[in-house]
Design a binder for these strands. Structure first.
Length: 617
RNA sequence: GGGCCUGUAGCAUAGCCCGGAUCAUGCACCUGCCUUCUAAGCAGGAGUACUGGGGUUCGAAUCCCCACAGGCCCGCCA
């Protein structure tokens, strides 16, 4: 990979037991340490292992730049590289060690490398890429959208990033629990309870008109719950703003909810319905949650009071003249002109941030690592949370992963301005376009299978599109790009997987039945020469374990999408250039192993990014 | 006004944390390739790009400073 591809090179981080690079790095740094020491160098092997980089493909597999090392030895880098390369003893893993410029370049022995990579992949099968089990439990909270209506694509970026992070952390060896924090407290939640406590026919005229209800006021059969129950939300918000008596009755309702006078099953009914609708959309994208935590639970279990009590003894504590209580976070990056994080209103009722602290304390009591996936609009609130946690005497902090907004070409998405693109719209449109594409190429498939493939291709394309960009970059949503089925897209990867699957079906001679699992080859099975396309593919396959480790550490989930594309691309290049099924015996079985290993890696990486690997399309 | 993030070919992006070998990929554009393993593919071409200016370094897209441009935020809402 390295300079040759767009995906990242395997990092230096220690990877799991099935990483072919671990032994290679070890051998190279071992040999280099001995050689350099004999030339008067005094550093450590660890130092070298860190400096050892993955070289530009074609030039070197592993490379050590000597510029820094040459200086204290009083030698020229080029000349030092030459003597080092000449002094490295031969080994079975490396065919050649050469000096170019100031670099010492290690070139892999192709057959040994092919063998170790195929063995790693075919030996571990669906576990290839996974790291060794790690001590400790991780909580990843993501999405946590207010259940006031259908999810828009902007928010679903949170889900895609969060769900992928959950998958990759699991693969890296952590025990992971995913949580959705459900907001059923406050004005927004009360608004829905307020309007839905009456039948639509009893709603104020303005709200009915703006909600565009069907004439009979009944929910259409095919309308999802989140769309139906969320429909009056924007107009209710506007209505309450303009009608004093409505505002008063809403405030009254909020009080009754927050004081516990209203049974929680009564005010959770509508949010629960909407949440179900949202979740069914998320399931289409392969995302689900282990646990749901309802915000209102922290209202009545005494935990907020405990936080407040603790905070009152903190030097950060501030109390305004009118009784509102806050915490000072000016030293923690809160704005100098408003460094206060309020935890209670002047009437003594609790505010959202303190419930969030109670929630995080609960997380810390159960988990060793706490990760929050948040939109960049919540960055400052996260800082406020840190200040409150500090005041509450909690030393641990959540790891916050923020992502940029998804805007439309004409500007920001707004629910009230009617300028939104809902996730459901995008998924439906993607599926419809995929149906056309499948029909164009396959005339032999049953309608049911066409639909199934199209759903998977469509939702995969959407998920991939939201994932492939570095999280902190803002995205401008364009339909043509989100719904592209070629190039850097999920269908491109799924297609490669289907292609590999088809080859293997033909190789085993039956078009259906379970796929045979080829055994890892032995040295005798390998052809004497390997083709560059075969080597390039193997090189990519070998990098999954290092990548899983790197992504789980750095949380750069977009790299997984780019890696998936690279593997698929290299399979395609291999496929186009070389025959598999009708090649001569030693080559044929080797290539079948290579295809099987590629299919396995594609399947594993698609699993990591939450896209379904398709057997045919 | 202040804070955080981002700026790479016509468009969209990777590489930036941790400086290293001619800056990589996709879309769009041009030329080829389906009577042999799925053309959602492959081969080739053109295009030209690290926002601008300083600095550090043997070496800067990468680190530092300044400027400019875009995103987000600066509620006793959640």
């Amino acid at each position: 990979m390295g300079g040759g591809g767009s995906a990242p090179a395997a990092g230096n981080a220690a990877s799991g037991p099935n990483d072919p690079w671990v032994a290679l790095r070890e051998q190279a740094s071992e040999a280099l340490t001995h050689t350099l020491r004999s030339l008067g160098w005094t550093g450590t092997k660890e130092e070298l292992a860190r400096a050892l980089e993955v070289g530009p493909e074609g030039k070197a597999d592993l490379a050590l730049p000597l510029f820094r090392l040459a200086k204290p030895l009083g030698r020229r880098p080029e000349e030092l590289a030459t003597s080092v390369a000449a002094a490295i003893p031969p080994s079975p893993a490396f065919a050649q060690v050469s000096a170019v410029g100031g670099f010492v370049n290690f070139h892999l022995e192709p057959r040994a490398f092919a063998l170790s990579t195929l063995r790693a992949v075919l030996g571990a099968e669906e576990h290839y890429g996974e790291g060794a089990p790690k001590e400790g439990k991780v909580c990843v909270e993501h999405t946590s959208a207010n259940p006031t209506g259908p999810l828009h694509v902007g928010r679903s970026r949170n889900t895609v990033i969060g769900d992928t992070l959950v998958r990759v952390l699991r693969a890296a060896g952590w025990k992971v629990t995913s949580q959705f924090y459900v907001d059923d407290v406050g004005r927004q939640a009360a608004m829905l309870v307020w309007i839905w406590s009456r039948a639509p026919s009893d709603w104020p005229q303005e709200i009915r008109d703006a909600s565009q209800l069907p004439p009979d006021g009944a929910r259409p059969k095919d309308l999802k719950a989140d769309h139906w129950y969320g429909r009056p939300y924007p107009s209710t918000a506007a209505y309450v703003k303009e009608h004093k008596e409505a505002a008063r009755s809403l405030a009254d309702l909020t009080d009754r909810m927050e004081s516990g006078a209203l049974p929680k099953e009564e005010y959770r009914r509508v949010p629960r319905e909407i949440l179900e609708g949202i979740l069914s959309s998320l399931r289409r994208m392969g995302a689900s949650f282990d646990e749901f935590v309802w915000e209102s639970d922290f209202l009545f279990d005494g935990s907020v009071e405990r936080v407040a009590e603790k905070a009152r003894t903190s030097p950060r504590y501030r109390r305004a003249d009118d009784g509102a209580e806050a915490v000072d976070g000016s030293d923690l990056g809160l704005p100098k002109d408003s460094p206060l994080v309020y935890m209670t209103r002047s009437d003594g009722t609790f505010l959202y941030p303190i419930r969030d602290v109670a929630y995080h304390l609960q997380k810390f009591s159960r988990f060793d690592r706490v990760v929050d996936v948040l939109g960049e609009d919540h960055k400052l609130h996260a800082r406020g949370l840190m200040a409150l946690l500090d005041a509450a005497g909690e030393k641990r902090r959540p790891e916050v992963l923020t992502y940029g907004f998804i805007n439309l070409p004409e500007g920001r998405m707004t629910t009230r301005g009617g300028r939104v693109v809902n996730l459901d719209q995008v998924l439906d449109e993607a599926r419809d376009r995929a149906v056309e594409e499948v029909r164009k190429r396959r005339h032999d498939l049953a309608e049911e299978e066409v639909q199934r493939i199209a759903e998977s291709v469509g939702s995969g394309a959407v998920r991939f599109h939201l994932l492939r960009v570095q999280p902190e970059k803002p995205i401008v949503f364009r339909w043509e790009e989100a719904l592209s089925f070629e190039g850097k897209s999920a269908p491109f990867v799924q297609y490669a997987h289907a292609r590999a699957s088809s080859l293997l079906r033909k190789a085993q001679g039956s078009d259906d039945g379970p796929m045979a699992r080829p055994a890892p080859p032995s040295a005798a099975d390998l052809p004497p020469e390997l083709h560059p396309k075969e080597l390039a593919l193997l090189r990519s396959l070998s990098e999954l374990p290092g990548l899983v480790e790197k992504v789980s550490e750095g949380r750069s989930v977009h790299l997984l999408a780019l890696y998936a594309h690279e593997v698929a691309e290299r399979l395609n290049e291999f496929y186009q250039e070389l025959r598999v099924l009708n090649s001569e015996p030693p080559v044929r079985s080797f290539r079948i192993s290579l295809v099987a290993a590629t299919r396995q890696v594609l399947s594993n990486v698609l699993g990591l990014i939450g896209v379904e690997p398709l057997e045919r399309m």
